[in-house]
Amino acid sequence: MKAVTVTILKKELNEHSHQELIDICLKLAKFKKENKELLTYVLFDSRDEDAYIREIKEEVDEAFSKLNHDSLYYVKKSLRKILRMLKKYIRYSKKKETEADILLYFCGKLKELKPSHKRSLQIVNIYEQQLRMAKKAVSTLHEDIQYDFHLEIEELQGN
């Protein structure tokens, strides 16, 4: 089965009643966990972006506390898992300020990781890539907001 375009979906949804739209949304939420998470963000978390960011940071803290330090392989695997989770949350929000804040927080947690994993080129590359992505997101923001983020970026770039 081939999916139709968003434009066709929009036209079709305009022809449905309010109750039918509710049923469609609930059916989507039951179908996949990501759909339920997106619906939760749209209905509850999008109103208070700061609380949403705090919630994500708490999840990051918990994930970093559970990191398996037995080998670099497990650390890299866990870091990639955390990043997948963060990218999903960033995709829900679509706000560059949220993206920059979350990515800089991740970089900060990665930098203070003990024992230091600077000897691993892959982990260093993950860190630098996320820092570049945060810089890119910051560059699209208003100048006043950029200043605060630039201070944080400079602190992360310092050894």
Results as ranks from 00 to 15, higher is better:
L83H: 08
L83R: 04
L83G: 03
R84P: 02
R84D: 14
R84E: 11
R84Q: 14
M85E: 04
M85A: 07
M85Q: 07
M85I: 04
M85G: 05
M85R: 09
L86T: 10
L86M: 14
L86Y: 02
L86S: 09
L86W: 04
L86N: 11
L86Q: 10
L86P: 03
K87F: 15
K87Y: 15
K87W: 14
K88T: 10
K88C: 05
K88E: 14
K88F: 14
K88M: 15
K88Q: 14
K88W: 10
K88N: 05
Y89R: 13
Y89A: 05
Y89N: 04
Y89Q: 11
Y89S: 02
I90S: 06
I90Q: 14
I90R: 12
R91D: 13
R91V: 01
R91P: 00
R91L: 11
R91F: 13
R91N: 12
Y92V: 02
Y92H: 12
Y92A: 04
Y92D: 05
Y92T: 02
Y92E: 06
S93W: 07
S93E: 10
S93M: 09
S93P: 06
K94H: 11
K95T: 03
K95I: 06
K95Q: 15
K96S: 15
K96T: 12
K96C: 12
E97P: 01
E97M: 06
E97C: 07
E97G: 09
E97V: 09
E97K: 07
E97Y: 07
E97R: 08
T98Q: 08
T98S: 14
T98H: 08
E99L: 04
E99M: 03
E99S: 12
E99K: 09
A100M: 06
A100K: 09
A100P: 06
A100C: 12
D101A: 15
D101N: 15
D101E: 15
D101I: 09
D101H: 11
I102N: 04
I102R: 03
I102F: 03
I102P: 03
L103Y: 13
L103I: 11
L103H: 11
L103K: 11
L103T: 10
L103C: 13
L103R: 15
L103P: 05
L103Q: 13
L104Y: 13
L104D: 10
L104M: 15
L104W: 10
Y105K: 01
Y105S: 01
F106H: 13
F106V: 11
F106Q: 10
F106S: 07
C107W: 00
C107K: 00
C107I: 01
C107E: 00
C107Q: 02
C107T: 01
C107R: 00
C107L: 03
G108M: 02
G108T: 00
G108D: 01
G108K: 00
G108S: 02
K109L: 11
K109M: 15
K109G: 04
K109E: 03
L110S: 05
L110W: 06
L110I: 13
L110P: 05
L110T: 12
L110H: 09
L110Y: 08
K111F: 05
K111L: 09
K111M: 07
E112S: 11
E112L: 02
E112A: 02
E112C: 02
E112M: 11
E112P: 00
E112K: 01
